[in-house]
Amino acid sequence: MESELINKLLSLGEADEDAALVTVSQTMGSTPRNPGAKMLVLKDGQVYGTIGGGCGEAEVKREALGALNIKASKKYHLDMANDVAAGEGMICGGKMEVFIDFLSCGDNESRRVLLAYFASLQRKENPLLVTITSIDEEKKELLGRKMVFLPANNEAGDLGAAEITEQARIFAGQFRAAREPKLITLSTATIQKKIIKLELLFEPGIRTPQILILGGGHIARPLVKMASILGYNTTVVDDRPTFANTARFPEAGQVICDSFGNFLKSLETGDETFIVIITRGHTHDLECLRDVINQPAAYIGMIGSRRKVRGIITQLEEEGISSERLKEVYSPIGLDIGAETPEEIALSILAEIVNVWRGGKFFKEQSIVK
């Protein structure tokens, strides 16, 4: 979620301003954004974030403004293959279901839940936000009700009825580790012992790639800049003070001046970690790859010619490192776009990272050649 949207969302209560938070809850066919994409619409027509742009977004914006006028949340189905979309040149052809969540500036409960959710995200935890996106008319006052599941079995908010909240707890255990939002339909007994049909949207913590850049040379600078545009967090490590400083990398989340070996001794990684090895020489590249090869990571990429890569891989195999694990290294690094300049190489590396993160369809041949 875009930081500008989050900041605006959190300031609504202080500004005494209503808003409509649009969330893509499910999609069918080809659509510009996936479930979880958000857009904040204000009464004066200002928009923060995007659910894909074009006439489809304009149509949803009109619906959101309508929800602001009547001060009520609603679901909306967007057919992106209709005549209006075709007339605007849209070619997605799919369908989107969005939840338009009316957020009153006076709704302190919703604001408290959202604050807890975003604070947990900032701590790099894995919160799970649950919202009632559809419910029978007789309990319509619960539409938009939300709660968040936090680490250590902590919670913020509730779903307005004990039975609904308890069922959400059951599903929370299943969906906490999910990478994409989950929309479920269920029937539950209300306090009045009537069967109520409702939908719950589960949104796991918005995870972003954590890019560890080993080497602060010429490629690292544009790589950090481009990654920051995408909202990815970067850490740059180099043992030279002139190359490892915040003045050189103002967009980096962290800049560390230390030897690679010393830093990597205490490195903690996970399935959101993307390791980019672009040091100034063969010896440092070998040292870094040796130290990270058995760490859990979404991606390990190492710069270098095929000859250099072959030599490093052969040496590590002789040291007893699994050849199967070494085959997972992306090297030479980056998608093959014919890059030559540091900026182009950085672009190719980031494109490869996005491809891996999003499960794209660019598959390069194994470049580590025996």
Rank of each mutant, 00 (worst) to 15 (best):
S3C: 02
I6H: 02
K8V: 00
S11V: 00
A15V: 10
E17T: 14
A20K: 09
A20C: 15
L21E: 09
T27D: 15
R33D: 08
G36Y: 10
K38I: 07
L40N: 00
I51M: 13
G52P: 12
G52I: 02
C55G: 07
G56A: 11
V60H: 08
E63H: 13
A67R: 10
L68E: 13
A72K: 15
A72G: 13
A72T: 08
M80N: 03
N82G: 01
D83Y: 04
V84K: 02
V84W: 08
V84R: 05
A86G: 08
M90C: 02
I91G: 00
M96K: 03
F99S: 06
C105N: 07
G106V: 14
R111H: 15
V113I: 15
F118P: 02
F118N: 04
L129K: 13
S134I: 14
K146I: 12
A156Y: 06
G157I: 04
A162C: 01
A172W: 06
A172G: 12
G173N: 12
Q174S: 09
A177S: 08
P181G: 05
I184C: 03
I184M: 03
K197P: 11
K197H: 13
L201K: 10
F202N: 12
P204Y: 14
P204A: 14
I213K: 01
I219Y: 03
A220H: 01
L223I: 01
V224N: 07
A227C: 06
I229C: 14
L230N: 09
P241R: 11
F249V: 05
E251P: 12
E251C: 13
E251D: 15
C257D: 07
G261F: 06
N262C: 01
N262Q: 06
S266P: 01
L267S: 05
L267I: 03
E268N: 13
E272F: 07
E272I: 09
E272P: 01
I277D: 08
I278H: 04
T279V: 04
R280M: 01
H282C: 12
D285R: 09
N294A: 00
I313T: 10
E317C: 12
E318G: 09
E318A: 14
E324K: 14
K327L: 07
P332W: 07
G334A: 00
A339Q: 05
E340R: 00
T341M: 04
P342I: 01
E343W: 03
A346V: 00
A351N: 06
I353K: 06
N355Q: 04
R358I: 04
K361Y: 07
E365S: 12
